[in-house]
Design a binder for these strands. Structure first.
Length: 429
RNA sequence: CGGGGCGUAGCUCAGCCUGGUAGAGCGCCAGCUUUGGGAGCUGGAUGCCGGAGGUUCGAAUCCUCUCGCCCCGACCA
């Protein structure tokens, strides 16, 4: 992409409404623009990152055996009356009346809808187990939206639902998702810690929240350092983790049996990016989701649900990875792999080298952002740092004369002067 | 949902207290000079001063109502 043609409205000054780093940086880097409180448009740069995160989530769901479908955003109130949640949900649910005076709602979650689909289409235990998921926009009419996409009213969520014939199966589905979540967050360059959680409004008796550590996290968290050691070995599963102490501050009990000694207890701030629940027959019973079991008798389905805040992750990643110059994207979710800074657009030698490099890197399948604008060097450096492109190739008249380009790493700040050939080799390795 | 704050140019904000018909910096447009970390000079465009009522000869400014946004607290992927 040539920056001269790209729709990238960056801001030099900090928008007054933004309080935390990720919100400021998403506005400044031209990723999002607010439409109304807690509701955002995603501009090209922001959408690119959102899609990358979505893709990782999707790949790990598919790999875990979950199957993607797509349910609507608008749901009938009737369905929610079946489960009893229409009245229970309160003002957070956005209620709509259509032209025929039918009561509808913009879905805040999809347990009812998916339960209806499964109950209407699965009749035998032989068709189980199933894990179904979709990645769809949700709406929760938060009293007080804040922090940009971290707590918006409209947000993109991946939600999976498991259906099993018995508890053992449901437990296995839960573990499958648990493991998939750890892999998903790790691929994004995040340290996510599963915390024993309160199932809350979803109900049930087994639940974990996944928090990523960041100074501006909304929750205080306490966890056993043994987690860091396990994570470093990649040796993580539900059994080993469930023995470890890891809770959010509202659940922290210094007198609990498994609290580690003070020198082993870490405290930090966390952002909740995932939440998984086993809730048994809460919805299947209320909504009569029943299949025929092996002995011919009806069996009420065992269910669980598993959410990941896809749009929130964009903010969460920035919270955990930025500096005073801008965003530092982990390579797995970076909107562009390489940025080319032409320090003297219009100079035939600089232009020539940049064009060659741009083509060579693009031909290698890399996503490249080429700053070909007629701007001063400082502006280009500042914008490239702001939007956080992991690798920056700086091409200037002095270097070109000497056959050299500069390769800068956004994360470490390290700059290396290399021949054009070796710079290309490094980037395409 | 309680408490507080703010709506003036694309952005950040001054002006409001003490009414007299709209400003700065940045950005944008043109020209010249610059050119390795958000340049300088000159000239230019841009505002229903959030909206509606009211007071007044006259309202960005005072009064009433209303809408929007932000912050603190209680709730959530």
């Amino acid at each position: 992409m040539r920056l001269s043609a790209y729709f990238l409205p960056t801001l030099k000054e900090i928008p007054a409404e933004a309080q935390i780093a990720s919100h400021r940086l998403m506005l400044r880097s031209g990723m999002i623009r607010q439409s109304s409180a807690g509701i955002y448009s995603w501009l090209p740069l922001g959408l690119k990152v959102l899609r990358k995160i979505e893709t990782i989530v999707r790949e790990e769901q598919d790999r875990a055996g979950a199957q993607e479908l797509l349910m609507p955003t608008i749901q009938p109130a009737e369905l929610w009356r079946e489960s009893g949640r229409y009245d229970a949900y309160g003002k957070e649910m956005l209620r709509i009346v259509d032209r025929h005076d039918r009561e509808m709602l913009y879905g805040p979650t999809n347990e009812e809808l998916i339960t209806q689909i499964v109950r209407d289409n699965i009749r035998s235990y032989r068709d189980l187990p199933k894990i179904l998921y979709h990645i769809q926009w949700k709406f929760r009419d938060e009293v007080r939206p804040r922090f940009g996409v971290m707590r918006g009213r409209e947000f993109l969520m991946k939600d999976s639902y498991s259906f099993d014939i018995d508890y053992e199966g449901a437990r296995k589905s839960y573990e499958t998702m648990f493991t998939a979540y750890l892999k998903t967050f790790k691929r994004m360059g995040l340290t996510a810690i599963p915390m024993q959680a309160d199932p809350g409004a979803i109900g049930g008796n087994l639940s974990h929240e996944f928090h990523i550590l960041a100074e501006t996290g909304e929750s205080g968290v306490f966890y056993d350092v043994a987690y860091d050691e396990l994570a470093a070995r990649g040796d993580i599963d539900l059994d080993s983790l469930s023995r470890l102490y890891a809770v959010t501050d509202e659940k922290h009990d210094p007198n609990a049996a498994n609290v580690p000694p003070p020198d082993r207890l870490k405290t930090a701030r966390g952002i909740e990016v995932g939440h998984i629940f086993y809730f048994g027959t809460k919805y299947s019973k209320a909504m009569n989701a029943v299949v025929t079991g092996p002995d011919g008798a009806p069996v009420t389905l065992e269910m669980g649900s598993y959410g990941i805040g896809v749009s929130r992750l964009v903010g969460a990643i920035i919270e955990s990875s930025h500096d005073d110059r801008g965003i530092i994207w982990p390579e797995a979710v970076a909107p562009f792999a390489v940025g080319i800074i032409n320090l003297k657009s219009g100079d035939s030698r600089c232009d020539g080298v940049c064009e060659d490099v741009y083509r060579a890197l693009s031909d290698h399948g890399l996503e490249v952002l080429y700053d070909d604008r007629d701007e001063r060097a400082g502006v280009k450096f500042a914008d490239m740092d702001l939007i956080g492109v992991p690798w920056q190739l700086v091409v200037g008249p002095k270097g070109v004369a000497a056959g050299i380009v500069e390769l800068k790493n956004r994360y470490s700040g390290e700059k290396q002067e290399l021949s054009l050939e070796s710079a290309l080799a490094r980037l395409t390795a």
